[in-house]
Structures are given as structure tokens and as C-alpha cells.
Amino acid sequence: MKLCDFVVSASIIPDLQVGSKEDAIRSMVTGLREAGSISAADEAGIVAAILKREELGSTGIGRGVAVPHTKHPSVDKLIAAIALSSNGVDFASLDGEPVYIMFLLVSPPDRPGDHLRGLENISRHLRNDNFCKFLRQSKTRDAVWDLLKEADNNEI
């Protein structure tokens, strides 16, 4: 599984301007709707499901990264949005630090394996300090997309 297979390029937000977890999640799901990956009718339900998951425990996994996610029957394959914040978002992370890189995942409930492999793939790249550094330096959607392609080809 490659990043470019499930990240929706049109939903990438390279300069997220909000500071709260809820607003960040809302903006990212709106990005998926505007990209045509989810329908307007499902937008609120997906936001609510992701926020509910966050109540069980933050998906802020440390090192300035969060991976908010939910399973939702409205999608037929794993999709992901990316948002970058230069000021940081308060995500109530495990390490108490703000979050600068967010990968939001929505996957079909009947394919838990895809969900796990998506998280595995994202986390493997995020372990690479250069990947995180270059991602945070990316200022445009195209720059982020090019970086994802390089990561997929193990060029970072």
C-alpha cells in the first residue's frame, strides 16, 4: 500500500489556520467533501464519528503528529486527508505537545485490514525525521504530493 493510493491529493491543506482539534478535523473532512471523496450528506456524520473516537483517547501520537480516524459505511475504500499547521493544533496528544502534521483516515467498516495497513504505512514514514521535516516545510499542495511520491519510492 502506497500513500498516493489512499491520500486524496485535492484534500491536502498545506496551511491549516485553525488552532483547535475540532476545527482541524472539521476542515479536513470538508476538504474530503470538496474533493468529491465523501458526500455532503455524510460530512457531519463523519466529523461526529471522528470526534467521538477522539473522546476515547487522543490520536495525537507524539512528535507533532496526529492520525484522527474513523470507520464509516459511506466510503468503499480507505481515504485520507492531510493538513499541516505551522502554528500547531492543540490535540491533547500523549506527549502534551502541539500537533503540526495531521493524517485523517476514513475507512469502510468491513475492511479493518486496510485501516491498519494505512496507519502502519503512515507511521512508518512519520518515523523518518526527514519526511516530517520536509512535510512541515511544504507550502503547497503540489509540494506535499511530490513528497508523498518520493516517500512511496523510498527516496527520502
Binding site: I61, R63, V67, L94, L116, R117, E120, R127
Partner: peptide, 12 residues
């Protein structure tokens, strides 16, 4: 001790 590292296991 690292959630990020544990995620890379893809454990099911």
C-alpha cells in the same frame, strides 16, 4: 513506549 513506533507493527 512510542505509539508511533508501535503503529508501524501493523499488529492485528
Amino acid at each position: 513506549k512510542s505509539l508511533l513506533h508501535l503503529l508501524t507493527l501493523g499488529a492485528e
